[in-house]
Amino acid sequence: MSNRFVALLSAFALASVTAACATEEDLLDSEDITSIESNSWGDLSSRPSVELWKGTDGQFRFHLLEKSQEIVFTSQGYSSRTSALNGLLSVLENGKQAGMYQVLTAANGGSYFNLYAANRQVIATGEVHATAAEAQADVQTALSNVTGYQKAWDTATGARFAVKQDSAGQWYFNLHARNGAVQLTSEKYTTKAAALNGAFSTADNGLSAARYQLLATSSGNGYYFNLTATNGQVIATSQVYTTKYSAERGRDAVIALLPVVPLL
């Protein structure tokens, strides 16, 4: 992803998290935080999912997967992770509309479908089948799974990254624990794709305790921690805790949580 977490959270954002202090008792233990509930965002057997990867050609692509983990379609290649995530958002917008699909004939005589954006650029392609009827059936599968994925995203519960837009039109994400408590809040971004990329950056950097700064509030009445990138710039900030020990536990809980939270 091209858009990195490059700035400290604004004073307003810090004031917002300061408003809700957490006691040591508010923290979940690691086992509770990292367990996955049925039908939550983390339960991939209950919903379609997306697999994003960087190929040997340096391009980022993604699959949409059924609950069975069968591939529904594959995206086009993108030069950056943020661009690929923007492509995913386009897929979710256009992939629910039957008119945005077209069944075509492959070079070997088989049939497949393309999914198009509003500008008629190809954003995803289905697998090649022997007949046009099979490719058309794949279109119906794609319609169902795009709709199902969007519904799961919109109604997600449990441990997850939740991307939101504020009243000024800026995008940010919260990292939620299994019980719904907000563990981290990101900086603001100008696009939804950039905020999603920020969530990936959190997963990239958040597994090492060395990436966290434990700090006292300016009033001296609490503690919080920042997650930082390798260049020292802040990625996201925790809520405010009443004691340093609670803040340390909160940091450790985030480190334990990140490996089990599906980003997509």
Score class of each variant (00 low, 15 high):
residue 20 A to N: 13
residue 31 E to Y: 08
residue 13 A to M: 01
residue 25 E to A: 08
residue 36 I to R: 06
residue 33 I to T: 15
residue 20 A to S: 12
residue 20 A to E: 12
residue 15 A to K: 11
residue 36 I to Y: 00
residue 24 E to S: 15
residue 27 L to S: 02
residue 32 D to N: 13
residue 5 F to E: 10
residue 27 L to K: 05
residue 11 A to E: 06
residue 32 D to T: 15
residue 9 L to C: 03
residue 23 T to A: 06
residue 27 L to T: 08
residue 10 S to F: 02
residue 9 L to P: 15
residue 5 F to A: 09
residue 29 D to M: 03
residue 5 F to C: 12
residue 11 A to G: 09
residue 33 I to H: 10
residue 21 C to R: 15
residue 28 L to T: 11
residue 35 S to N: 06
residue 30 S to T: 14
residue 24 E to P: 13
residue 36 I to V: 07
residue 5 F to R: 13
residue 29 D to A: 00
residue 27 L to R: 01
residue 31 E to K: 15
residue 36 I to Q: 03
residue 25 E to M: 06
residue 21 C to L: 07
residue 17 V to S: 05
residue 31 E to H: 10
residue 27 L to C: 05
residue 36 I to L: 08
residue 33 I to G: 09
residue 12 F to V: 14
residue 36 I to C: 09
residue 11 A to L: 01
residue 9 L to I: 05
residue 29 D to H: 06
residue 7 A to H: 06
residue 11 A to I: 00
residue 33 I to P: 12
residue 33 I to L: 09
residue 34 T to M: 08
residue 26 D to W: 04
residue 35 S to V: 03
residue 6 V to F: 01
residue 21 C to I: 08
residue 18 T to H: 14
residue 7 A to T: 08
residue 17 V to P: 08
residue 32 D to V: 14
residue 8 L to Y: 10
residue 9 L to A: 02
residue 14 L to V: 06
residue 35 S to P: 10
residue 22 A to S: 14
residue 7 A to Y: 00
residue 29 D to C: 02
residue 7 A to W: 06
residue 19 A to Q: 11
residue 13 A to T: 09
residue 5 F to G: 13
residue 17 V to E: 00
residue 10 S to L: 02
residue 10 S to I: 03
residue 29 D to Y: 03
residue 29 D to E: 04
residue 36 I to T: 10
residue 33 I to R: 14
residue 8 L to G: 06
residue 34 T to E: 00
residue 32 D to R: 14
residue 14 L to D: 00
residue 18 T to Q: 07
residue 7 A to E: 03
residue 36 I to N: 01
residue 11 A to Q: 02
residue 18 T to G: 14
residue 26 D to R: 07
